[in-house]
Structures are given as C-alpha cells and as structure tokens.
Amino acid sequence: MLDDRARMEAAKKEKVEQILAEFQLQEEDLKKVMRRMQKEMDRGLRLETHEEASVKMLPTYVRSTPEGSEVGDFLSLDLGGTNFRVMLVKVGEGEEGQWSVKTKHQMYSIPEDAMTGTAEMLFDYISECISDFLDKHQMKHKKLPLGFTFSFPVRHEDIDKGILLNWTKGFKASGAEGNNVVGLLRDAIKRRGDFEMDVVAMVNDTVATMISCYYEDHQCEVGMIVGTGCNACYMEEMQNVELVEGDEGRMCVNTEWGAFGDSGELDEFLLEYDRLVDESSANPGQQLYEKLIGGKYMGELVRLVLLRLVDENLLFHGEASEQLRTRGAFETRFVSQVESDTGDRKQIYNILSTLGLRPSTTDCDIVRRACESVSTRAAHMCSAGLAGVINRMRESRSEDVMRITVGVDGSVYKLHPSFKERFHASVRRLTPSCEITFIESEEGSGRGAALVSAVACKKACMLGQ
C-alpha cells in the first residue's frame, strides 16, 4: 500500500517536472537572447534605426563620474514606483581627507489618484512632500541643488532636461508624456511658492545606482535594477552614441532593455503563462523582457503555473481556492519566502493557508518547484541581457580580458534567497573573457542622484555659470 502511494507521488512529481521543464533555458538559448539583445542595442544607438529599435539606448548626458572633490548639501528625489523618497545628502571631506556622503531620508507613498490623475496632481503632491521634508529638517530658507531620480523612459536633451516617452509600472498621470519632466517639477514648486529649489540633474535609477557604486569602486561602469521592473545602464564610447554629437570619451546610456521583445525577438521563448500575464497587464505587448524578470510579474506567473497544475490534477487534489483564482493573489514576496523555507515546509504551508488552501507535504514541495522554475528562468533571462552589455563593452574597448564592476539594486536581487547566485553564475558562463565584480548599492537611487548633481554643480562652477 505504502509502495503504491510512494509510486503515485513519484509519478505525480515526474509529471510536474515535465510541465515545469518549459521554463528551462539551455545555454544556447541564452546565447541567442544575448546576441539578439546586442543587435537591438546597436539599432538603438544608431541614428537611422533608433526610432524602430525596441531597446532605445537613451543617452543620459552623464559623462563624468564623481571624483571626490564636490562638497555641499544636496536634496535628492526618487520616483520610480508607488513609494517616493526625499533625501538630504551631505557631501563633504571625511576623516583623513576621505570623501564622505551622509544621508537623511523619508519615504512617502503615492496615492492612487496622483498616479493615475493628471501630471499637475502628481507633481503638486511631490512638491508637497518636499515642503514637508524641508519643514522637518528646518531647511526651507536654503535654496538647495536638487537631483531627481526618475525611473521611467526619458529622452534627455541635457542633464536637466528630459522628455517622458511613456509611463510604465502602473503610472498613468495624463499630460506628462511628451513633456519635460524637470519643467513639470519646477512648475509645481513655483505653484507652491513656499520654498526654492535648483533642479540641476535628472537621472534614471540605473544611472543613480551606477554612480553610487562608483563611489565604492571606481571600476563600476554598469548599473542595473532588478526590482519591480528590470533595466540597466553602462558607459558607452561616445563615438557609438549617434544621437549625441561628439566622439570623445564616454557617456552613460540608459538601455531601457525592459522593452526588448516588443518587436518579436522573444516570441519563441514566451510561454502561455507569459501571454496571460501580458494580456492582463496595463501595457499589453510592451516591456516583454521586463515581464519575464521583474517583481511586478513574478508572483503572478507562479500563480498561473499553480492553476495549470491544479487543472492537471497534480496539486491540491485538483481544487483551487477562490483566493488562488484571484489575479495578483500570489505576491512576489511569497516566491522569495517559499524558496527561503528551511525544509520543514512550515513557511510554505503558512503562505498557502493564507490563500485558503490546506496543502499536503507533496503540495508544498511542488509549489516550491514552481517558484524555483519561474525565478530561475528570470535570473537566466536577466543574465543574457547583462552578458550582452558586458561583452559589447569588452569588444568596443578591444580588451582581451576586461575587469568590470556592476552596481545592482532592486528588491528581487536583494531579497530573493537564490536569485543573485543563479544570476551571477549564468552571467559568468556567458562572459568567459571578463572578470566581473557585483556590488549592491546602498540607498543607491538617492545618493547617486545627489552625486550626479554634485558633478553638475562642479561643472557649472568651472564653466562660470
């Protein structure tokens, strides 16, 4: 009897593995994704193909990295998701002549009506938060230079001027797309009239992360975010950046690689679950690469896999709870928690219980395998993109072996128990001629924006502006 049951459990697990095998990517698959990513990057950089390229390769006008001589107080704003952060950054000489960066910050959550109302409502709310922060720190009387981390696709015309191309991540505030974001912020500050600010720089969160990590390690020339969304930036040779005049030196390019796949480059790798996630998203047909990796989508992918296993009578005796059938019910943090389970399955059992399920031991094991399959594919897909960037940098610099540091931020990278190990191992397999160091950014977005502002202020002083 026991043997029969054991055989049935083994057969069930084997069927589960057959279904989950769809998520496995072979090294040849990853090399294919990497080569296609490089081709799209090239198209994004070139003037004649930029418009139709899915990977936009947006110039950021960040050319210099901090040298350690900029000092002063800077205000930093960070808008990239449902939370908005205001930070005071003091850049100065530390002990023994070292450079020191001290920060104080406060988080504000953005109400739904500000995210989806008008641009005026959104930026009025942001300036209200700045006003509140300055009151708390008794700094209303000071006109501070301000660095703005704005983590949406922007076409820069200068370091302090950028046109919002399109909202992502659930934002829909009308009247912002096609307009200068810094102008919208300046107008809102003017409307309030109770404080003055000098907006000197606007950067993407990947750029802010790279600059913040450069402060720790001067070989950091790539910034990457794996959180709600997924994106990367890197220092490109100016001669390859056709959208900006000049051939000397390097400029940081914001790849906006989340949109890779929007022209069909990933079609052969998309599964039924991916198509369902895409169809029910706020932007169907867009940001397809990001939807395979980002935390906004990972939990939902797992939920759809679990429903398939229920329908195949391989999980929960073929019956799903009402909660499990509800879109968004299986949160991405559950994926991390399930994979963090120590082996007694308590954590998995508790999560499934909150979803109205009474799982068996085998159910718990199957749910864990589903989570591992989805998150491992995410790590491997992400590795193909980064390997594409790094191999490109090595080739354009004609280096036999390139040493490089990548600064990384984002909740999936930082909080998932195995993502970074799987990701690092896969990147290294795909970049055999590179020695890569990964560092995690601390308060990256805010500190990085302030350091970019410090560079901009120093330049302005040198130019006598």
Results as ranks from 00 to 15, higher is better:
Glu27Trp: 08
Asn240Arg: 07
Glu95Met: 10
Ile390His: 04
Arg333Gln: 00
Ser383Asn: 11
Glu40Ile: 10
Lys56Thr: 03
Asp124Pro: 01
Glu399Met: 11
Val16His: 13
Gln38Met: 06
His424Gly: 10
Lys12Trp: 11
Thr60Trp: 01
Met298Ile: 06
Val367Gln: 00
Ser174Leu: 02
Tyr125Ala: 03
Cys382His: 05
Glu421Val: 13
Phe123Lys: 00
Val412Ile: 04
Glu9Asp: 13
Gly249Cys: 08
Ala320Phe: 14
Arg429Gln: 10
Met115Gln: 08
Glu443Val: 07
Lys90Cys: 13
Gln465Arg: 14
Glu322Lys: 15
Leu430Cys: 02
Gly299Glu: 07
Glu319Asn: 11
Gly94Ser: 08
Ile163Asn: 04
Leu355Val: 09
Asp311Asn: 08
Gly264Pro: 00
Asp158Gly: 06
Gly264Met: 13
Ser360Asp: 13
Arg303Gly: 05
Asp4Tyr: 11
Ala173Phe: 01
Val200Tyr: 01
Gly183Lys: 04
Ser411Thr: 12
Met34Phe: 12
Lys459Met: 10
Ile293Pro: 13
Glu28Ala: 13
Phe74Ser: 07
Leu415Met: 04
Thr326Asn: 06
Lys420Leu: 06
Pro359Cys: 14
Arg5Glu: 15
Leu266Asp: 02
Gly446Met: 14
Asp187Asn: 06
Gly97Gln: 14
Asp194Met: 05
Pro153Ser: 05
Val310Glu: 00
Ser426Arg: 09
Lys172His: 00
Arg85Asp: 02
Gly117Gln: 06
His317Arg: 12
Lys140Leu: 05
Leu20Gln: 07
Asp4Met: 08
Gly410Ile: 02
Ala282Arg: 15
Phe334Lys: 05
Phe423Thr: 13
Asp262Cys: 11
Glu312Tyr: 14
Glu290Met: 03
Thr116Met: 11
Leu144Asp: 02
Glu28His: 15
Val199Trp: 00
Glu40Ser: 10
Ala425His: 14
Ile293Trp: 03
Ile225Asn: 00
Gly147Lys: 02
Thr82Glu: 04
Val181Ser: 01
Glu216His: 14
Phe438Val: 07
Val253Phe: 03
Leu276Pro: 07
Leu122Pro: 03
Tyr297Ser: 10
Phe74Asp: 11
Ala176Ile: 05
Ile436Gln: 03
Lys12Gln: 13
Arg36Met: 05
Arg345Gly: 11
Gln347Ser: 14
Asp278Met: 15
Tyr125Met: 01
Leu357Trp: 08
Arg397Trp: 09
Asp400Phe: 10
Gln138Glu: 02
Arg250Thr: 09
Ala10Cys: 14
Val302Trp: 07
Gly356Gln: 07
Ser280Glu: 06
Asp42Ile: 11
Val241His: 10
Val408Leu: 09
Asn313Val: 11
Thr228Trp: 06
Cys129Leu: 01
Glu248Val: 08
Gly246Pro: 09
Pro359Trp: 11
His105Phe: 08
Ser281His: 12
Ser263Glu: 10
Asp278Phe: 04
Leu288His: 09
Leu164Ala: 03
Gly444Phe: 01
Leu144Cys: 06
Ala53Glu: 04
Tyr234Asn: 01
Glu93Asn: 07
Ser396Gly: 11
Thr361Leu: 10
Ala208Ser: 03
Gln98Ala: 12
Ala450Gly: 07
Ala208Thr: 13
Asp4Gly: 09
Arg46Trp: 05
Val374Phe: 00
Gly294Phe: 02
Ala114Ile: 05
Ala6Pro: 09
Glu51Leu: 09
Thr326Phe: 13
Ile189Val: 07
Gln138Met: 09
Asn391Phe: 10
Val374Gly: 03
Gly343Cys: 06
Lys291Ile: 07
Asp274Arg: 00
Asp400Ser: 12
Leu451Lys: 07
Asp205Ser: 03
Ile110Cys: 12
Leu415Gln: 11
Glu93Thr: 07
Val16Leu: 15
Glu442His: 15
Ser321Met: 15
Ile351Thr: 12
Met235Ala: 03
Leu144Glu: 03
Phe316His: 15
Cys252Thr: 15
Cys129Ile: 03
Asn166Phe: 13
Arg422Met: 11
Asn180Leu: 04
Gly92Pro: 11
Asp124Lys: 05
Val86Ala: 03
Thr342Tyr: 10
Val455Asp: 13
Ser263Val: 10
Gly464Gln: 12
Met298Tyr: 05
Lys143Glu: 06
Gly227Ala: 15
Val277Arg: 03
Gln239Leu: 12
Pro111Glu: 12
Asp160Asn: 02
Lys104Trp: 13
Cys252Gly: 10
Met87Ile: 06
Ala119Asp: 02
Leu58Cys: 02
Leu301Thr: 14
Ile293Met: 08
Cys220Gln: 04
Arg369Met: 13
Lys414Gly: 10
Gly193Ile: 06
Ser174Gln: 07
Lys459Ile: 05
Cys129Asp: 00
Ser321Ile: 13
Ala329Lys: 14
Ala454Thr: 05
Leu415Asp: 02
Glu128Lys: 11
Ser54Leu: 04
Val374His: 05
Val455Ile: 12
Tyr234Cys: 08
Leu306Cys: 06
Lys39Trp: 13
Cys434Trp: 04
Phe150Ala: 08
Gly299Ser: 03
Gly80His: 07
Val310Gln: 10
Thr342His: 06
Gly356Pro: 06
Gly343Asn: 06
Asn166Pro: 00
Ala173Gly: 00
Glu52Val: 10
Ala10Thr: 11
Thr116Gly: 07
Ser426Asn: 09
Trp167Ile: 01
Asp262Phe: 11
Glu196Ala: 10
Phe74Ile: 06
Glu300Trp: 04
Met8Ile: 07
Val406Ser: 03
Val207Cys: 12
Glu399Asp: 07
Arg397Val: 06
His416Asp: 08
Gly193Thr: 11
Met57Gly: 02
Lys143His: 02
Lys39Pro: 06
Glu28Gly: 13
Val203Asn: 03
Ser64Met: 15
Ala259Ile: 01
Arg403Ser: 11
Ser69Thr: 15
Glu17His: 11
Leu88Asp: 03
Ser280Phe: 07
Arg377Tyr: 00
Phe330Thr: 08
His50Met: 05
Lys136Ala: 06
Thr149Cys: 15
Glu242His: 05
Phe23Lys: 05
Val86Ile: 10
Ser54Cys: 10
Ser281Met: 08
Trp167Ser: 01
Asp187Met: 00
Ala208Trp: 05
Lys420Cys: 06
Tyr108Met: 02
Ser360Asn: 10
Glu67Phe: 15
Thr342Asn: 13
Asp205Arg: 05
Ile110Tyr: 00
Cys220His: 00
Ser411Arg: 14
Met210Leu: 06
Gly92Lys: 09
Leu146Cys: 01
Ala11Gln: 13
Glu120Asn: 00
Leu88Asn: 11
Arg368Ser: 09
Ala425Arg: 11
Leu314Ser: 11
Asp217His: 11
Phe133Gln: 01
Leu451Trp: 01
Ser453Gly: 15
Met381Ala: 12
Asp363Glu: 14
Thr326Gln: 14
Leu45Gln: 00
Arg333Asp: 14
Ala425Trp: 11
Ala320Cys: 11
Ile19Tyr: 13
Asn283Lys: 14
His137Gly: 12
Asp267Ala: 15
Val335Gly: 13
Met381Ser: 06
Tyr214Thr: 15
Arg275Phe: 14
Ile126Met: 03
Asn313Lys: 11
Asp124Gly: 06
Glu157Arg: 02
